[in-house]
Design a binder for these strands. Structure first.
Length: 278
DNA sequence: CATTACCTGCAA
DNA sequence: TTGCAGGTAATG
């Protein structure tokens, strides 16, 4: 999924459903490699009796704040989803973790590709996770000056920079392509080469694509679901992502697919001119 | 910096 | 059968 808007949507829909709920225990865990810390045995021992105080997000981590100082951190990676299910709802072969609540409902971690990860963190572990990530793009801390300070000292291309979670938290392949198209910048432009006006435009575009993604409850290409099990609708509004061979909504030029930073990358070759070779 | 690995499903 | 997919960590 799951980039910032999808994780944010999942966190909000979890918060609305399970804030104040008590965990009965782990009902299913059939892929133990998803538990990074502590050991699966410790997870089994620590979760029963915990109350879910809140649900939130840091970067692409969904955070369930529990009592007794614990935080259950979930990363959905490529194909994960976290949903709250009614007591009778059956699981399937891709449901790898089920957390039962005392009221009979259950939280399903569904993940066909098994890339998703779970950590139960104490305050120190949570602080380390926080410190490993960069500025949140939808907070006041991410202003044009802060963005300029990120770009100016780096010669790396825009796309890999925007995907770097240590610098900027939450952007992924879809929203980077969309933000670059909106700001009419080529993904291979060197970060330090942007004029002040280009930096301001890209800064605004990043906020715009993320806010729109949240407003549309995320993008569902295959597996992503909100915490209610619903699909998002943001995929209907993509301008370039996944639109190879179709006309650019701005100028009509055919959208092309490149590979940048080892990721499929979609651009309008007219609106987003390639940088001159150095 | 580039390549490979981790997994499965789906479309070409 | 091959290549591709919303992410990231671990290798040369």
């Amino acid at each position: 999924m799951p980039e910032l808007p999808e994780v944010e949507t999942a966190a909000r829909s979890l918060a609305a459903q399970v804030t104040g709920s008590r965990i009965a225990g782990i009902e299913k865990l059939d892929w133990e490699r998803m538990v990074e810390t502590p050991s699966p045995a410790d997870l089994y021992a620590l979760l029963p009796g915990r109350t879910i105080a809140q649900a939130g997000r840091r970067a692409k981590w969904l955070l369930l704040t529990l009592d007794a100082g614990w935080t259950l951190a979930v990363h959905l990676r490529m194909s994960g989803s976290l949903t709250v299910q009614a007591p009778a709802e059956p699981d399937d072969t891709h449901t790898h973790l089920i957390i039962a609540l005392t009221d009979g409902r259950r939280i399903f971690f569904h993940d066909p590709r098994k890339f998703g990860r779970v950590r139960l963190l104490d305050a120190h572990g949570l602080a380390l996770l926080d410190a490993a990530h960069g500025v949140e793009p939808l907070t006041a801390a991410f202003d044009v000056a802060a963005f300029t300070a990120l770009l100016q000292p780096r010669r790396t291309a825009l796309k890999p920079l925007l995907l770097n979670q240590q610098l900027l938290a939450g952007m992924g392949n879809i929203y980077v392509d969309e933000a670059l198209w909106l700001s009419q910048l080529h993904p291979l432009r060197a970060a330090c080469s942007l004029a002040a006006a280009e930096t301001a435009t890209l800064h605004a575009a990043i906020k715009q694509v993320l806010e729109q993604g949240i407003a549309n409850e995320g993008s569902t290409l295959r597996n992503y679901r909100t915490g209610y099990g619903r699909s998002g609708s943001n995929q209907h509004y993509f301008k370039v992502y996944g639109r190879t061979g179709q006309p650019c909504p701005r100028c009509g030029t055919t959208i092309v697919r490149l590979v940048v930073a080892q990721r499929g990358t979609h651009i309008c070759p007219q609106c987003q001119p390639a940088p001159l070779p150095a």
